[in-house]
Nucleic acid binder design. Structure first.
Length: 512
RNA sequence: GCCGCCUUAGCUCAGUUGGUUAGAGCGCUAGAAUGUGGAUCUAGAGGUCCCCUGUUCGAUUCAGGGAGGCGGUACCA
């Protein structure tokens, strides 16, 4: 039997969780990031950039009691056998940068940065293994006012991205009140604490009933998989539910409608438990709430949904020490297949007073947040809330006569000088029809046609492809289509730029 | 990690109750029409039917294992 004579073809494939980005995606993302950047600059933040790779120990990602990095990060060993890892967020590298340059940096240090981060974990809807984050941090700012400012900036950023007030919410919590809760209900085992926190974190996903199950024996999901619970007793469960049940949030009448009142809510929480860490967390939340309200970001006179106190916000468990906050979208998101998808938060952050101390031994208080640009992009795409920047395709100068290439290039140059995208056809010019087909498929606004006839007379043909496209709908017969040459007109060679500038498609773009 | 569904042409998908040559639409290439896009017509290229092992005279089809994709769930800085 004959063996495979064909050479094995290499299979073109992407690593899962990694994606190619289309031109329209890149343009939309750039535009989005420009808007975010404007807000951050306005708030007085300056950019900084760190590399993709860091020493694994600087990221704090060695497994305990092991000389191997955590599996969740992409890691490799350098020639000298030191472990390197791709950054998994932008905060750990910032802490390294600050620690390394602490003498040159003026505190409080307001800084922002955007970049790709990498996580070696299973991708999900809107979750990738390489994705873009946009961070802002204030380093060397110990006060709640810094946290409040971060929350307000996050709200302003959402609105700069044309996410309407009411379509998003910034939810704020303080880790100290969670610690106070554990003290109050008598949970001291670290593992059990984690289970409780995770259960609370699932409130928006599974509702109160789901959380109850997770606090108790456990919960079975739709696919039949079982999650073990925190195994609290009934009294403890009751207390936790009282703590995170949104129905217990207190309301006030603002401008004729009942809205959540953060100050009343905080008083309600004060009545639940009493211990020093719990109270100090609530004090911090209260001063944040007051600042936010005084600055016009709270409920008074506004829809209530801008900045909320919400004890079910947990965030990551690793380095946050006080305030934590999270930006969440409130509208439904469906994927390409029309299935409704759990979207969750598009950004978040908090106070990390201990992160820089790892390097310097000296406590440097810091607070910051991170926007998941890639996730936010897919949500906005979904919502059709992206501005469609219609970067027009280039004008195509057709090649009719190979000996005239220099002349064609000259036309292209003239157009480019005026800021109009233009190119000479670089494919095989043998078939003239192909050139127009190319222009058509690229959605070019116009094609320039000049052969020996035109050169002799000192003219060119300009074909307005937009006009032609419209005309084509009513022409069924090819003879007619060809003889009419819809959208095509001739002009003097010297009028090339002038006539192109008069095309409606070009005018519309230049007026933007 | 665990659970469910899925995997046939570049794309979307049919189909083979186990049989010789595996199909469609779209897309692509060429021609009708060599200086005019769209529509139309004609022809052509393109397949290890996800992989491995087993059962069988014979496996794309059946069985077992694996990989990949999607979704849920867990973990998540």
């Amino acid at each position: 039997m004959a063996k495979n004579k064909k050479p094995q073809k290499v299979k073109a494939r992407l690593i899962r969780g990694f994606n190619d980005r289309s031109s329209s995606d890149i343009r939309a993302t750039d535009e989005m990031m420009g808007k975010i950047q404007n807000v951050f600059e306005l708030y007085g933040f300056d950019p900084i950039e760190t590399p993709f790779l860091e020493y694994t120990d600087a990221l704090g990602k060695f497994l305990p009691d092991s000389d191997r990095p955590n599996e969740g990060v992409f890691s490799l060993q350098d020639e000298d056998e030191q472990w390197l890892s791709l950054r998994y967020d932008l905060t750990a590298p910032l802490a390294r940068h600050v620690a390394q340059n602490i003498n040159e940096i003026t505190m409080p240090y307001r800084t922002y940065r955007a970049g790709w981060v990498f996580r070696n974990e299973k991708p999900g809807p809107g979750r990738f293994r390489q994705f873009m984050q946009f961070d802002a941090d204030i380093v060397g700012a110990p006060n709640v006012s810094a946290d409040a400012e971060m929350c307000m900036m996050m709200a302003d950023t959402m609105e700069a991205l044309r996410i309407k007030r009411g379509d998003y919410v910034i939810r704020v919590n303080n880790r100290k009140i969670l610690d106070g809760l554990f003290e109050a209900i008598g949970v001291f085992d670290e593992g059990q604490k984690l289970s409780v926190l995770r259960a609370i974190d699932k409130l928006d996903k599974f509702g109160l009933d789901g959380v109850k199950l997770l606090l108790g024996d456990g919960r079975k999901d739709e696919s039949g998989d079982f999650t073990k619970g925190a195994e609290l007793n009934e009294l403890q469960i009751d207390n936790v539910i009282k703590f995170c049940n949104p129905d217990n949030f207190q309301t006030s009448n603002y401008e004729g409608s009942l809205q959540k009142d953060p100050l009343k809510t905080i008083n309600y929480f004060r009545s639940l438990f009493e211990n020093s860490i719990y109270t100090s967390g609530l004090d911090e939340l209260e001063s944040l709430a007051k600042l936010v309200i005084d600055s016009g970001y709270g409920p008074k006179g506004y829809f209530s949904g801008r900045i909320h106190i919400d004890p079910s916000v947990v965030r990551g468990l690793e380095y946050y020490t006080g305030m934590v906050y999270e930006a969440e979208l409130l509208f439904d998101v469906t994927n390409d297949k029309g299935q409704k998808v759990q979207f969750g938060s598009v950004g978040g952050g908090g106070r990390y007073d201990g992160l820089i101390k790892r390097f310097t031994g000296q406590a440097v208080p810091a607070t910051g947040f991170s926007i998941g640009v890639s996730r936010l992009m897919s949500a906005l795409k979904n919502l059709d809330r992206l501005e469609k920047t219609q970067m027009p395709a280039p004008i195509i100068v057709c090649v009719m006569d190979k000996s005239r290439v220099a002349d064609y290039q000259k036309m292209v140059m003239e157009l480019r000088k005026k800021g109009i995208r233009a190119e000479m056809y670089q494919g095989n010019p043998k078939n003239f029809g192909k050139q127009l087909q190319y222009a058509d498929r690229r959605n070019s606004p116009a094609a320039i046609i000049a052969g020996s006839d035109e050169f002799e007379q000192g003219i060119i043909q300009i074909k307005d492809l937009v006009v032609g496209k419209e005309a084509s709908q009513n022409i069924k017969d090819n003879e007619q289509w060809k003889s009419e040459r819809p959208g095509q007109f001739e002009c003097k060679r010297s009028e090339l730029v002038k006539k192109i500038l008069e095309l409606p498609a070009i005018k519309a773009w230049l007026n933007k």
